[in-house]
């Protein structure tokens, strides 16, 4: 994996020539950066302010105006009262569905990815690289191509429309990425470590648990964050393989927003969207470094 050196080591901006044009350029730079920051922040700002306004204020006020009177009514509705079609229980049950779905799926796919990566990187056998290539390619297929047979397979296995069914799907299609993460991490560890441990008498599993696992905290973090973000944010599998009571939060959010019954409650929509986005946003703010590592590891391999 390419670790991105986000600390400034060699920046090109060097020579401090104090000409007025340099200063003007510097100001232009700050203005541009600020404008872009506004562009990225604006939707979040609008979401938050809208979610705190009453419907009345939304109709009469401006999109970007701050709320005149802050109300948490929309949040309450979004969490426990908004309608997703026929049911009107808000996002809450679906939020928990997503938690129940994401936690096991993240754990299982990370554990399997760690073991797979360990085998591929450190216990090379004939064909291991081909297996890795095949798994890696699995990361890149458009999932539409497995949607139909998977729907039938889940039916055959008797887990169609259930949370275990969704866990199964997410584990299978997350394996390629988790294996890639761990493989690329373990490949940088010298083979002599395994040799030394073999001479010391340790076996395959002992070496993994005593030597490799304690080394793996950074990559476990990357894998967990990546998988959590992917699974929490997934919509395609959720909408294809869940049934009325087992939908994940993204599907429920979409249903709330697109439910045609009654008046359009934009403030509730925004509150619901924020609720659905909070967990991953939280993870991003908390562990952005690892989030970025996961993102780039998926694309900059080697």
């Amino acid at each position: 994996m390419t670790d991105i050196p986000l600390s400034t080591q060699t920046s090109v901006a060097g020579a401090d020539r104090k000409g007025w044009s340099t200063i003007a350029l510097r100001w232009l730079l700050f203005v541009m950066l600020g404008l872009f920051a506004l562009f990225y922040l604006m939707p979040l700002f609008v979401m938050v302010t809208t979610s705190l306004k009453s419907l009345e204020e939304i109709r009469t006020g401006s999109l970007i105006a701050l709320p005149r009177s802050v109300t948490l009514e929309a949040w309450r509705t979004a969490w426990s009262g908004a309608c997703t079609g026929i049911q009107c229980e808000g996002l809450r049950p679906y939020f928990w569905n997503s938690v129940l779905l994401a936690v096991p799926a993240v754990l299982i796919s990370t554990v399997l990815g760690a073991l797979n990566g360990y085998v591929i990187a450190q216990w090379r056998f004939k064909g291991a690289n081909i297996i890795f290539a095949l798994m890696l390619f699995g990361c890149f297929i458009p999932f539409q191509v497995v949607l139909l047979p998977m729907a039938r397979m889940l039916g055959i296995l008797g887990i169609a429309g259930t949370i275990p069914g969704l866990i199964f799907v997410h584990v299978i299609y997350g394996l390629g990425f988790t294996t890639l993460f761990f493989r690329n991490y373990y490949v940088t560890i010298p083979h002599e470590l395994v040799k030394a441990a073999k001479v010391d008498g340790a076996g395959f599993l002992r070496i993994f648990f005593a030597i490799f696992l304690p080394l793996s905290l950074p990559i476990i973090t990357v894998s967990v964050i990546w998988q959590f973000t992917q699974i929490w944010n997934d919509f395609l599998f959720g909408v294809s393989f869940s049934s009325a009571g087992t939908q994940p939060v993204t599907v429920a959010l979409n249903n709330i927003v697109n439910s045609t019954t009654g008046v359009k409650e934009y403030n509730v929509d925004m509150a619901a969207a924020i609720i659905a986005g909070l967990p991953t946003l939280f993870v991003y703010v908390l562990a952005g470094k690892y989030f970025i590592r996961g993102l780039t590891a998926g694309s900059v391999k080697g």
Partner: peptide, 15 residues
């Protein structure tokens, strides 16, 4: 600049 990447496309679309 990067936080939108953490959001679900559904959230982005809704916003």
């Amino acid at each position: 600049y990067l936080y939108p990447m953490a959001l679900s496309m559904i959230v982005t679309g809704t916003a």
